[in-house]
Amino acid sequence: MNTMAPHDVKLIEAITRITDTLDADLFFYAGEICREGYERVCDGLDQLGPDKRTNCGLFLNTYGGDPHAAYRLARALGHHYERLILYVHGPCKSAGTLMAIGFNEIVIGDRGELGPMDVQLANREEILEYNSGLDMIQAMDRLHKHAKDAFKDFMKDMRMKEHLSTKFASDTARQLTQGLFSGLYAQMDPVRLGHVQRTMLITEAYGNRLNARTGILRSEKSLRALVYDYPTHDFVIDRSEARNHLFAEGYVRCPDLHEHMVAALLYELHPGSRRDVEFLHLLHTVVTPAALPTADDQAGEAAATPVQEPKAAQHGKRGRQAGNKPVSTLPQE
């Protein structure tokens, strides 16, 4: 028989309170958003069977991943539950933000942050380094603007200051502009540019499909802003930015005391910075502070200790089987 400290009981009470108030199954997903994570979520939902509640609450810590997997995850949860609530206490970046569009409500803590959805592509020059897909598109736009301005300046100077004929001035300006910028344009790989543009369109198309179900975005411009307009992939989209510029009124709120308590402990368990995936059903597996990694643990290692639920929590589940086990954690890469 397990002995629980007072703070463990408070944690279970907080989870049970959220579960009963929202009539929601509560899940925790942390790490890279990938197909493997999608399969684990589907396996976890299958284990619940007919014991699922009406709604779903997901605590998500991630720095992003595969947009295809993000779309599948959001759609899978939407198939199983009527209403989806997303809890963001730490990072929910890139593909995590794409997932957020598929939810009916987003609860963002003071330290929570979303991020732009521009695609990250492997750097051909460096190992394990990525560049934003917007880099090439923005470079092309900048070159186009500079080339057009250069042609206008050459043309104006020769026509107005040197009093040359319009035909001669335009031909000379064209040759000067071509000589100045042709080398830069030659460095652009059209095949890679096409790949970047298609990938960005994929992310935008997934966002449109998810928003068609939830209507969570403020306008069509909000989705384009998330994909194209932010200056860097690491740009911080906090609660104020999300509420005032991206999502419709009433869809973003602050966490209450119980939600904050659960989210804070889960952030300590796995802040989302590691690639390994952690997926838990919070009423079937309660993670205690004693299970958190110590200074002697290996880098990136986390632990979770199952705790037997008290009878009050079992009664709150309306007949659920308390013996369901969470999906096991993958070994660290």
Rank of each mutant, 00 (worst) to 15 (best):
H144Q: 15
A322Y: 04
S273F: 10
A225T: 15
Y81M: 04
L180G: 05
R198W: 11
Q187I: 01
L292W: 01
T97M: 03
H163P: 14
H146F: 08
E36Q: 09
A264T: 10
D171C: 12
L45P: 06
I237H: 08
G49I: 04
R192N: 06
D66H: 02
E268G: 09
L246K: 02
A74I: 08
C254V: 09
T172S: 14
K167A: 15
H68Y: 12
M158V: 04
D135R: 03
L184Y: 02
A302C: 05
R275W: 07
A290F: 05
K311V: 14
L134P: 04
I18C: 12
K221D: 05
Y251E: 10
Y71Q: 02
L201H: 03
L26P: 06
P331K: 11
P190K: 10
P190V: 13
G37H: 02
R40D: 15
L48F: 01
Y228W: 11
L176P: 07
A212N: 12
K148T: 14
L48W: 01
C92W: 00
E162P: 01
F59D: 02
I237W: 03
P293A: 14
E241Y: 00
E13K: 13
I216K: 01
L193Y: 12
R275Q: 05
L45E: 06
A313Y: 10
F27E: 04
G31W: 03
S182R: 07
D153G: 01
G115D: 11
A291D: 15
R72D: 00
K152Y: 09
M158C: 02
D66W: 00
A70C: 00
G250D: 03
K152W: 08
A242T: 04
P116C: 14
N104H: 10
Q308H: 06
H233E: 15
V9P: 11
P306F: 08
R253E: 01
P255L: 09
R274L: 04
